[in-house]
């Protein structure tokens, strides 16, 4: 589904101080995979996600999305791919202020031809277990609930690929696990899920871990026994009692 060939990303103009955030990265991710990209802060994870999500363009190398060259597409064409095939979840949620949960989830549908956007948004909220919070505004929700709204927003277009950039970074460990659970469930329905995190224990819930360091892939391996969230949540629950 996704193929990166010798991708480099350099920030800053020639002559001024430049940062090589990605250094000759090659990578293939197949449809339906559940992948974690791990690495220390500043290693280039977000840069990679921005390129994978077509929010940014690489400096050199080639990116193939469903066997098509991405670099030749216009910004409007990239927007239409993001709209139909990619869902984003961010560390900082990025919900619209003063706006209800359901209207936040409707946002991606505004840029599509879908008619019954309210119905689709409610369905997505149901999938993340927030059916009872649809009219609440962003500031009336807990951070875990806000991130669920953000996930529902990423899901609502029924995208093929979901990208999460440290989606658990602003959450406590239990809430973080609940969020990873949702990602796991989404992967089970056949979606390609790419989860960026610097927490090893979060990464171990995926099927494949790619470690980057200073913009290079230093490790890429399958997880033999991915951790099971339901069990862990139960364990946490009993510990709390």
């Amino acid at each position: 589904m996704i193929q990166l060939k010798n991708i480099s990303k350099i920030y800053g103009k020639a002559g001024s101080q430049q940062v090589k955030a990605l250094d000759n990265v090659s990578l293939t991710i197949n449809k339906g995979e559940f992948v974690a990209i791990v690495g220390a802060s500043g290693s280039g994870k977000t840069t990679m996600m921005n390129i994978l999500g077509m929010l940014d363009r690489q400096t050199s190398g080639e990116y193939y999305f469903e066997n098509k060259v991405v670099s030749i597409l216009s910004n409007n064409e990239l927007a239409s791919i993001r709209s139909g095939k990619i869902g984003f979840v961010f560390q900082k949620f990025h919900l619209l202020p003063k706006t209800s949960a359901v209207e936040n989830v409707e946002l991606p549908l505004i840029y599509t031809d879908h008619k019954d956007i309210r119905h689709m948004a409610l369905e997505a909220l149901n999938k993340v277990g927030l059916s009872n919070r649809i009219k609440h505004r962003s500031n009336e929700l807990s951070s875990g609930q806000q991130q669920r709204v953000a996930i529902a927003r990423a899901l609502v277009n029924n995208p093929e690929m979901i990208l999460g950039d440290e989606p658990t970074g602003n959450l406590d460990s239990q809430t973080g696990l609940e969020i990873v659970d949702i990602f796991q469930q989404m992967n089970r329905t056949g979606k390609t899920v790419i989860l960026i995190t610097h927490q090893q224990n979060i990464a171990e819930h995926t099927n494949r871990i790619i470690r980057i360091h200073d913009g290079k892939i230093v490790e890429d391996y399958r997880v033999q026994n991915p951790r099971n969230i339901a069990g862990e949540l139960m364990k946490l629950d009993t510990m709390n009692k």
Binding site: L55, N76, S83, G87, L96, L107, P108, I110, Y111, N157
Partner: peptide, 16 residues
């Protein structure tokens, strides 16, 4: 800016 960035991320084109 963050609203605009978000709208773009979820599929709004520059035209939109």
């Amino acid at each position: 800016v963050s609203e605009i960035g978000l709208r773009k991320a979820v599929g709004a084109s520059p035209k939109d």
